[in-house]
Structure formats: C-alpha cells, structure tokens
Write a protein that binds this DNA or RNA. Structure first.
Lengths: 186, 186
DNA sequence: CGGAAACTTATATTGAATAAATAGTTTTTT
DNA sequence: AAAAAACTATTTATTCAATATAAGTTTCCG
C-alpha cells in the first residue's frame, strides 16, 4: 500500500476523532496540504475512502489479537483478558459514540464496522466457551458478559466522571477486566 | 395520600413506559376515565405532577434499600449485591433510555431524578468503601464499579440481544452482579 | 505531476409561515 | 360531584423556499 493512501486514511481517523462525522474532503486536503485531486486519485469517492479506512484500522487489531491467541505461554484466562483489552482499541480509535452517525449516510461503511466488531467478539466468544468447557470459568450467558463489557467501555468513553477522579481510561479498562475475571471479593 | 393522586401517578408511569415523554394530560384522563379537572384539582400543573411522581416512584426503592442495609443477618458483601440489584428498579420503572427527554422540557424534574440516583449511589458507595476498609473486597476506583454497573444496566435495557437468547433482564442482572462480586474465574 | 483555487451540482441547514397538538380553563351533561 | 366535551391561548411540528455547505470536477499554474 502506498504512503499517500495511508496518510489520507490516518487523516480520516484524526479528523473523525476530532470532529465526529463533520469533516469534509477539504478538511483532509488542508490537513495534509495535498490537493483533493490527489485524494480522488486514490479513492473514487468518500464512501470508498471510509470503507478502506475501516479495514485499515481494524487490520492492526486483528493482528494483535491473533498474536495473543497464538501465544502458547499464556493460559486461556489470560488470553481472554488480553483479547478483551485489545478489543477496545477499536472503540478508542474509532470513538464509538459517534459511529451511529454513519448509519444513515454511509450504511455500507457502518455495516462493515458492525461486522468487524461481531467478528472480533467471535474470537472472544470462542475463548470464553472453551474456558467454560474446561471448567476454568463459570458458565454464564455470554451475552451478559458481552453487554457488561460493551456497556462499561461506552460509559468510560462517554462520561466525564473518570476525568474528575484522575483515573485514566486505560486504568479503568484494566480494573474492569480484573473485576470481571477475578471479582471484587478478595 | 389519597387514592386519586396515586392512580394518577401510576398512570404517568404506565404512559411514560409506553410512550416515553409523548403522552398528554388527555391521555391520562382517558386511561383512567377521569376528567382533566380532577387531575388539575390534585396537581397545579404537569410539572408538579411529574415531580410528585418521581418522589413517589423512588420512595419504594429507598425503603427497600434501607431494609437491606438494616438487615444484620446479611454480611456486608451480600448487602452490596442486594443494594445494587435493588437500584435498577429505578431504571426499570422509569426506563432510563428516555429520561434524557425530560432534560429540556422539565429540567426541575430531571434534576430531581439525577439527585435521587446520586443519593442511591451514595448508599452503595458507602458500603463499598466500608467493605474495602475491612478488606472484604479489593481496593478499586469506585467510579469504575459504578460505570461498569450503570453501563451494563443501560445495555440490558436497550439491546435486543438478551431477548434473542431467552435470557431475561432479571437473570442478566443477577449474573452481572455475581460476576462483579465473585468474578468469572472459578 | 501535483497543489491551489474556482466551479458545478447535489445535499444540508435555516428560518419564516402555517398547521397541528396540547396545557390549562370553562361549559355542559350525566 | 365528577365525567365529558368544548374552548382558548400557547407550544410544538411541519412545510417549503432560501441559503449555505460540501462532494466531486475542472482550470490554472509552479
């Protein structure tokens, strides 16, 4: 992949996290000091650019996740912890609270993201099921685990309560995973 | 409190859960087969009605909570579990996803609700702090616990994923609390 | 070639005008 | 005495034209 393409997609991520969906092709060209012509040489339209950016953004996560799963030095429960913490990088880079804005204007892109997230959860689900079968963790409905984790992440991202107490997003996430794996009880 | 007042406030809760904020004084009178005059004899205006309904709705929860806290047969960690499960009755009756609609049109009522929830959390927080001091549970930032629980509840209420897997809201809630207290690890 | 800017057309936003709905009151009916 | 219906003064929703914005194209220039 050529570097122009990459830098354009990086700019999309930067602008998305900065302004949500309210950024223009002109914003991209201004940020990178390139002409719109250059953007349109790489991507036929805005749709295609967003679609490619989604794939580009998720590729890193997928790879990281695959490494964790392949790492035989980790036991199953450690893998689950790490894969779950790995997952939120999506939420982080893409800033989940604003993704719903895509649904109407870029439905194809939105569905691509939804699909990617489902796939990512698929990995985690398989690990959870395996751990349940082996008696390493309790048998609990997986949707409960999934929704609890998703809900917590969205809350961490959307509230100002964490900032007030000087607890970082990263620390909160690790605390949350530890609570879910090991419980509050000592 | 007279029974007319009560039935009007019950109707408000019914209609709110049915239609969100989009119900009228006429809806109330139709539902109860009473005249609007009767409503306005009990409550000066819609604001006052809503305000009273909020207090009425939270009163039961507060009492239930107080009973749990006063129950000396329960140990501290059990109390925490029970108080947390007690809390969502608010979310249940009031259907939290729609409360934000109050913010603009009935700010006084909205702030009352926000205050009630904060107070409820205050109790839980005190129990959590006490349990941490006594070494019964891990020392974890309380906002992390709070946001995880709030996020999970909101997810349970807003998603259709639970319905698909035949896991009830009630079961999910108990599973979630068990996970947070005791962890997934066996 | 590729950046900068001008240009065109489709889409979004705004705001005034109008229509509809509703809180609160009054009158009529049972 | 209270329900039902009618009424009015506000609020709220809707419409539609104007205005503005942004995607995508073309032109010019270094």
């Amino acid at each position: 992949m050529n570097s122009t393409r990459k830098s354009i997609m990086d700019a999309v991520v930067v602008l998305f996290n900065e302004k949500g969906m309210k950024f223009t092709m002109d914003d991209i060209s201004k940020l990178l000091h390139i002409s719109k012509k250059t953007i349109y040489k790489e991507f036929n339209d805005k749709d295609e650019l967003f679609y490619a950016t989604v794939d580009y953004g998720f590729a890193a996560i997928k790879q990281k996740e695959a490494e964790i799963i392949a790492d035989d030095s980790l036991d199953l429960v450690d893998k689950i912890s790490k894969v779950i913490v790995c997952l939120p990088d999506n939420y982080r880079n893409i800033d989940f609270r604003q993704v719903y804005q895509l649904r109407d204007k870029f439905p194809v892109v939105y569905n691509r993201i939804a699909g990617k997230i489902e796939t990512d959860w698929g990995e985690t689900e398989r690990l959870l099921e395996e751990a349940m079968d082996k008696g390493l963790i309790k048998k609990v409905p997986i949707p409960v685990i999934k929704l609890t984790i998703e809900g917590a992440i969205e809350k961490f991202l959307s509230t100002k309560e964490l900032a007030k107490t000087h607890v970082t997003y990263e620390e909160s996430l690790n605390s949350m995973i530890d609570i879910i794996i090991n419980g509050l009880r000592v």
